[in-house]
């Protein structure tokens, strides 16, 4: 079982060994648990990965909109590390994948410019013994809930991996002269439009590149998050996240919904 290349802490090894004896832990609700069983998977354990990362400083030009590549790299690598560790934990448990993955960023008082990136989720294993590892031979990851996982399986799709792309962008300040307005009219500011367009499209392209590496046929549930973290309002991280999927069966088994009127409040 022990994989010589993994870098998980000792306590983790111990916890996972216990889980291999047949006990499972999970943060799934009973509903989610039942639905995951319904599509032939069994939860094997609650897994997590973490990385505390020091994000460097990059100088920004006051009046120029540009990507801050160093910060982009930091934000990406840190999440990637946390995700990898979570995947390693899942692999240790012999899992085929992880569902309900949540990615969080924590800031602590003791670490200036340092942030903890965390990934948590529930590892699951196919009950028929057929491997569902993704194209890269790793457990698939996804931020789908138990309900969503069930629904996706009914459409004949299988998750391949939680994919993400990020872009930290500095948006130019406008000079006083510009702010006071040249024309006295509400008009488009093409430079701003372009900068924002560029930043978001970059994040999405990077996410799609990840999906392409997994040989996925698509990405569902794409979210675009915008956060300034602790950099001030002109520096924004655009983070695109979604679950890459591939079609594994032509069969659509979704039942026709019944129209009901619920009397519950």
């Amino acid at each position: 079982m022990s994989n010589p290349t993994n870098d998980l802490p000792q306590a983790t090894e111990h916890r996972l060994e216990e889980l291999e004896k047949g006990l499972f832990t999970s943060d799934l609700s009973v509903n989610e648990f039942l639905l995951i069983k319904e599509v032939g998977f069994h939860p094997v354990g609650f897994v997590m990965g973490s990385s505390i990362y020091h994000t460097g400083i990059q100088t920004r030009k006051w009046s120029q909109s540009q990507e801050l590549t160093k910060l982009t790299e930091a934000m990406y690598n840190a999440r990637e590390l946390a995700m990898n560790r979570m995947e390693e934990e899942a692999a240790e448990l012999g899992a085929d994948g992880v569902v309900g993955v949540r990615l969080d960023v924590n800031y602590y008082e003791w670490g200036k410019d340092a942030a903890e990136f965390i990934a948590v989720g529930t590892a699951v294993k196919a009950e028929d013994g057929v491997s569902r590892l993704n194209q890269l031979g790793k457990p698939f990851t996804s931020d789908l809930s138990g309900q969503d996982f069930w629904t996706l399986r009914q459409t004949g799709y299988m998750p391949q991996g939680l994919v993400m792309g990020t872009c930290v962008y500095h948006i130019a300040h406008r000079g006083i002269g510009q702010t006071l307005g040249t024309t006295g009219q509400n008009v488009e500011l093409p430079n701003f439009t372009q900068a924002l367009y560029e930043a978001r499209e970059l994040a999405m392209t990077r996410m799609q590149d990840e999906a392409a590496r997994l040989g996925a046929s698509g990405i569902v549930g794409v979210r675009l998050e915008e956060k300034s973290h602790q950099w001030g309002s002109h520096t924004i991280e655009f983070l695109a996240l979604g679950t890459a999927v591939t079609k594994t069966s032509e069969e659509m088994t979704l039942a026709k919904p019944t129209t009901i009127i619920s009397l519950d409040n």
Partner: peptide, 21 residues
């Protein structure tokens, strides 16, 4: 004469046509 159902949705969808599988 309401019908009784068990919902497998976590979110409380107070009113919607739902999938009852």
């Amino acid at each position: 004469h309401p019908t009784m159902v068990v919902s497998l949705n976590d979110q409380n969808v107070a009113f919607d046509a739902q999938t009852l599988a």
